[in-house]
Structure formats: C-alpha cells, structure tokens
Nucleic acid binder design. Structure first.
Length: 474
DNA sequence: GTAATCACG
DNA sequence: ACGTACGTGATTACA
C-alpha cells in the first residue's frame, strides 16, 4: 500500500490493553466523529489490512483537522488512563466503618423524629409517599409544586424553601443527605475494593461525553463528596498507599473563566487574571460599580453566580432563579456584566454565528461538537444548542489542557523512573500517590506541566497540596 | 426501563 | 412567544 498520501498514524502503539472501553474504534467514533458505516472493525490490527478504511480515517482527519487531537491527545491518553485504572487508590476501611456507625445512629434518630410527627411510618425515600405526607396529611403548602409527571415535587430546591416555615422538612432534608452518603459511598465503596490489590480501581470513559471531558464509573470517583461537613468525612477515607507515601492534589484555579477570558480576548477580564485578582471580587466591583475593597459577601456571591452563568449561557430568568434576585435586578446585573466585559458578549455571539455557519463549534485543540439544532425553528432546541455553542469550547478546552498535561506528566515520571503515580483526574484536578522521597520533584513536574503545557492569553494557575488523605491534600 | 433525586466539576 | 443555566453517575422507587 502506498503511504505517501496518508498521515502516518501510529495506530496500535498505544492501545495496550484488550477489552478496554477506550479502544481505537470508540475513540474514532466519539472524539473524531468518523462514521465508519458498515465497515466497523473490532480488532485494531485490521485497519492495516483494509486500505479503504485507512484511507477513510485519514481523509476525515485531514478534512476535520483532527490528526493532532487523535495522535497527540486521545491515543496516548488511553495508555495513561490504563495505568491509572490499574494502579487504583487505597480506601481506609477502619475509618469508613467508624463513619458508618456514626451515620447509622444519626439516621435512626432522624427516623424516630420524623415518624413522631407524621404519626405513621412511611418510606422516606419514596418521593410519592413523602409528597403525600408533606402536602396532604400535614398540608404544609396550599398549592404544592408538581413535577412534569404530576407528582408532588420534593426536590431539594422545593424542600429548602419549605424548610424555613416547617422544621419537619429540615429533618427530611437531613435524612436524605445522610441516606445518600450511606448508600452511594459508605456502603458501596468497601464493596468495590479489589480482592487482589486491596485498592479501588475506577474505570475512566474516554469516549462518552459531548465536550471532551472524561467520565468515571464502577465506582465513580469524580463525585466523591466535599461540599458538606459529613461529606468531607468520606473524602478523608481515601489515603496514600502506605506510610512512605502521601496524596498529592493539584487543581487548576478558575480554569474555565481563564479560558473564556482568553478566547474572547476581553481586556478587562484578562487584566484581572494577569494581575492575579480574585475574579469574583473584581467582577462584583465592576458590576456594582464600587471599589474592590467595598465588595461585600453577598455581592461577591452574586458575581460568582453570574460568572458561572456566563459560562453556561446565562439568561435573566436563570440568574434570578439562582440568586433570589428579581428578574429585573438580574437583567440589570447581566447588562452591567456585559458593559464591564464587552468582548465577552461579542465572543458569545460569534460562537453562535460560527455554529450556524459551520454546524459545529470547536475547542483550542480543534475538538469538535456538532450542533445540528442550532438552526432549528423550535426555539427551545435552538436556544439549547446556542448555550452549547458557548459552553462547549470552554469546558472542552479545559479538558484538552488537562489531558495534554496528564500525558506530559506521565512521560516525565517514566523518563525519571519515579515511583509516584497519577491516580485520578477530576476535570480540573489531578490526584497522585507520591513517594515521600520524591515530593519536591513531583510537585515541580506537576505544577510546571499543568501551568505551561498549553499557553493561553492569561496565566494558568495551579493550587497544589499534599497530606495523609484526599481531604487534607486539597 | 424511566423518573426523581443528589453527589461532583 | 417560548422555557430556562453546562457536563457527568449511582441509587431508589415504581410502572
């Protein structure tokens, strides 16, 4: 076969493990979006025997400008993920059993109190039964909110509003969060410890998300609790492999906002990051037209919500929902926001135009997401595609950056024959099991690669720390 | 199997 | 005039 017309695909050199979800065929389908039609092949070696397939792949890579993404990111990453899955992470069984006892005593107390008030035992976990108790037996609300299937809504949001007036609802909320922690983490994680390695081996899916992020299953180690006091106890159970090791956590500070600052080229937002300002405080100062040192907690909190909203494709309605501000106040804040960061509005409109014209949007490494509904006559579908057009380049570029960092860090570890291992990726964070003797060099390698592997128009900043468990390392 | 809920970035 | 934030996975209840 003549190779001159083809890119030199190094297929096979990376895909070391049979049966992986992240095989070459899946990567082509999801990340490169190559439709192989009826020509699907299971065994990667086959591609060498089917010149027409080989040609089809190369034609796609060339047309879509995706050779680099396949060759420099997704293929080598599959090998890094394989090693992370193989390595696993240690769970402190004694500690999680202590936590189990504490939680079980507490949840039992809650149940006694709840049934005292309801005067009848019912299944608190059943939204249907709970709705009937709350809104019929106890009649806590005159016109209760319903879900789309006609059931009473008992979501956290609905219940939190009710809880101000009725303490009973607080008991339900506490029971729910405790039940969640018990079933999803305390009971389930110990069952997932591998018999041979005594460690938990998650599986990373490289070919699932629409934006280029990874996902994690069996168990999902990308949603280990951290936001609440009790949740933090769960995170504390993840520990280094032994007393000669420490867990190291490195996370990007505000990577998505830095990316949108860079992509939009907005001078004001770029300046905030270049001057190492607190972005939410800076935003509050601009939006509310006050000095940085005059920003109060509430203003910063609202500015933070707007900053996130911008990344998601904000509307005045969505903002007022999140903040409790009125619709008109929200509109005013958003108007001020775009006056403060004028290029951002322009950038968002440009992304939408780009998607309408080309049918897709792309990240800084040319990862593409196709948005066929961007030209739909259905306003709901169209606005959804427009929000995707804004959000995907931001979320996806962050995924590009951390993926390339992971590959570089892995290469560096191999080159220096370090014992320390990359264990987990949580979207903007990497977790390592670090040999204490290597801590200084590992910190240097990790920070340097995460901050400098891909340059954008503002500095990337990494917070790094280590300790005897995942909670204190953070 | 789907809906509802809630854990994370 | 419309309905409303982006991306995931696990658990439980229930049709």
């Amino acid at each position: 076969m003549k190779m001159n017309n083809f890119f030199d695909i190094k297929i096979g050199s990376y895909l070391a493990y049979p049966g992986s979800r992240n095989d070459f065929n899946s990567i082509l389908k999801s990340n490169i979006q190559i439709d192989l039609g009826e020509d699907e092949f299971e065994d990667i070696d086959n591609v060498y025997y089917y010149p027409e397939l080989f040609e089809k792949i190369n034609k796609n890579l060339k047309e879509k400008n995706l050779y680099h993404l396949l060759e420099e990111i997704e293929n080598p990453l599959s090998n890094v993920l394989m090693k992370m899955e193989y390595e696993g992470i240690r769970l402190d069984l004694d500690l999680i059993n202590e936590i189990k006892e504490i939680f079980e005593i507490e949840i039992h107390k809650l149940e006694v109190k709840i049934f005292e008030i309801s005067e009848i035992e019912f299944n608190i976990a059943s939204p249907k039964q709970l709705g009937e108790i709350l809104f019929e037996k106890l009649a806590l609300e005159s016109k209760p909110k319903k879900t789309k299937t006609g059931q009473y809504s008992t979501s956290e949001e609905t219940l939190s509003k009710l809880a101000k007036k009725h303490d009973f609802v607080n008991l339900i909320l506490e029971w729910r969060s405790l039940q969640k922690l018990l079933t999803t983490y305390v009971y389930s994680l110990p069952k997932q410890i591998d018999q041979h390695s005594n460690r938990i081996h998650t599986e990373f899916n490289q070919t699932l998300t629409t934006t280029g992020r990874l996902s994690s299953i069996n168990p999902n180690l990308q949603n280990i609790p951290i936001r609440t006091k009790k949740g933090k106890l769960i995170r504390k159970c993840f520990t280094p492999r032994d007393k000669n090791y420490t867990l190291l956590c490195a996370d990007y500070s505000q990577i998505e906002l830095r990316i949108i600052a860079s992509l939009s080229g907005d001078t004001n937002m770029k300046a905030a990051f270049i001057n190492n300002e607190d972005i939410h405080t800076s935003t509050a100062a601009r939006v509310f037209n006050i000095n940085i040192d005059e920003v109060n907690e509430e203003q910063r909190r609202n500015a933070k919500i707007v900053n996130f909203g911008i990344i998601y494709g904000v509307s005045a309605f969505g903002l007022s929902n999140q903040t409790g501000l009125s619709r008109s106040e929200s509109k005013e804040i958003i108007d001020n926001y775009f006056k403060s960061y004028p290029k951002l509005k322009e950038y968002m409109n440009n992304q939408i135009s780009f998607a309408r014209e080309k049918g897709y949007v792309e990240t800084i490494l040319k990862r593409k997401r196709y948005l066929p509904e961007i030209n739909s006559r259905n306003a709901i579908l169209r606005s959804s595609a427009e929000r995707n057009a804004i959000n995907t380049p931001v979320q996806g570029s962050a995924a590009d950056i951390i993926k390339l960092s992971m590959i570089r860090i892995d290469n560096e570890f191999e080159k220096r024959s370090l014992k320390s291992k990359l264990l987990l990726q949580v979207h903007d964070e990497l977790v390592f099991d670090v040999d204490l003797a290597e801590i200084d060099i590992v910190k240097e390698i990790v920070t340097n690669n995460m901050e400098n592997t891909i340059k954008i128009d503002v500095p990337l900043k990494v917070d790094i720390g280590n300790g005897d468990n995942w909670l204190v390392a953070h």
